[in-house]
Design a protein around this nucleic acid. Structure first.
Lengths: 222, 222
DNA sequence: CGTCCTGCTTAGGTCGGACCTAACTTTAGG
DNA sequence: CCTAAAGTTAGGTCCGACCTAAGCAGGACG
């Protein structure tokens, strides 16, 4: 456990204890969820196992789902912030590609490859699936707000559509990663496959899709 | 044995009564929600006002949110079915455009223009916003399943990205309609504006977005 | 034509997550 | 020291989701 002593003022005993409590709760909760499944563990169970009051759990994690997705803020803001801070002259799409590649290279697990057991736990719980959906949508919304703020008023619709396309592509890649995980693909191979998938997916955003028709041609009755 | 025609459509006093009960509950609930707000009305309130047992409400509407979004199935399936049943040779994007235009012409309120009071009620409730998000995502998922089923295995990623783009565009148009509604735009004008917005939005799906950068230029205007 | 099966409805209850209040504990600061 | 602030605590309420066993009415069939 490494303590960031970037700011001496924020490393008081008080904050350290609070952070410790939070991480203890999170660790205990994760273990219980992995063992029994999300729905089968109550907040009271988590509190008892962590040796704190029920209300303390709620104070740190307002919703039960937050015990699982405590990186939600990072997922929601990451893309939008990267696009907002892109170098002048860099197109939006290029910034989005760059951020994805950088996250992948940095091994950011929030791209979707958090581990097969995590993926299974999430998919087994409607509440967690719903929360995950919400996070994905908030990411699109955050990106949309950034683009709308930068765009002329008459470009607002375009900004929102582009945000939806980029965010939608991230979402597809997220679930692609999960599918690969659940199919048993090992981590290093997954990173490679995900990089290739991202390349193809983002290329589709610039392609002319007006003629796309995946339907099997009746031609070959082989 | 095989003569068990229990599911006779529309006929039968039994089904008529059930349907009647369902609609009575739905009507009463809508009125209460509009009057007091979604969160301020309990299921027990709805049951009492409709003159039925609490459990009857739950049987007809498993989740409280279903009392509001009882057309969810239609929203989720509509686009996917329209694309699945498109005439042979029609590209996916053309089918999506056609379905949107047809729904708009038919006055389908599920496009987003359900009325300003409805829009306000939804936005005032986190639970309803979440449910709405879920419906939008399920629509994308349904479309993706259709396209994946029709596509060659090596086209799966493309199918999912296209589904995300089309579904995302529908989502943008839905919220655009709501924004216009909440700004007080009257219904006939809204239909027009929504049609124009749809045209522009779908056009963006075929445009080359690789150079898109909405950031205000610094008026050097070379 | 009556009887039985089916299935909608009902009452009364349990469970758990979200939320509230008031108080207790400890740290940080004057 | 003493106080303000923040974290934690206990005890409780509320309500949505869910369960079960019983009640009741429609429709199928002998």
């Amino acid at each position: 456990m490494e303590t960031t002593r970037t700011t001496e003022s924020t490393t008081g005993l008080r904050e350290r204890k609070k952070r410790q409590t939070r991480e203890e709760i999170s660790a205990v909760a994760t273990a219980l969820f992995a063992e029994r499944g999300f729905e089968q563990v109550t907040i009271a169970d988590v509190a008892a196992a962590a040796g704190v009051a029920k209300m303390t759990v709620t104070n740190h994690f307002p919703l039960k789902e937050d015990l699982v997705f405590d990186r939600a803020e990072h997922i929601v803001r990451g893309l939008a912030d990267a696009v907002a801070e892109r170098p002048r002259g860099e197109p939006v799409l290029a910034a989005a590609r760059r951020y994805f590649a950088a996250s992948l290279a940095a091994g950011d697990p929030t791209l979707g490859h958090l581990g097969a057991s995590f993926a299974r736990m999430v998919e087994a719980s409607p509440a967690l699936v719903a929360r995950e959906r919400q996070i994905q949508d908030q990411r699109i919304e955050a990106l949309a707000e950034v683009l709308v703020a930068q765009a002329r008023p008459d470009e607002e619709l375009a900004a929102r559509v582009i945000a939806a396309q980029i965010g939608g592509t991230y979402r597809v890649l997220y679930f692609t990663a999960r599918r690969m995980l659940l199919n048993g693909m090992p981590a290093p191979e997954l990173a490679d496959a995900l990089g290739r998938a991202a390349h193809r997916a983002f290329d589709l955003l610039t392609a002319d899709l007006s003629g796309f028709d995946p339907r099997p041609r009746l031609r070959s009755t082989s």
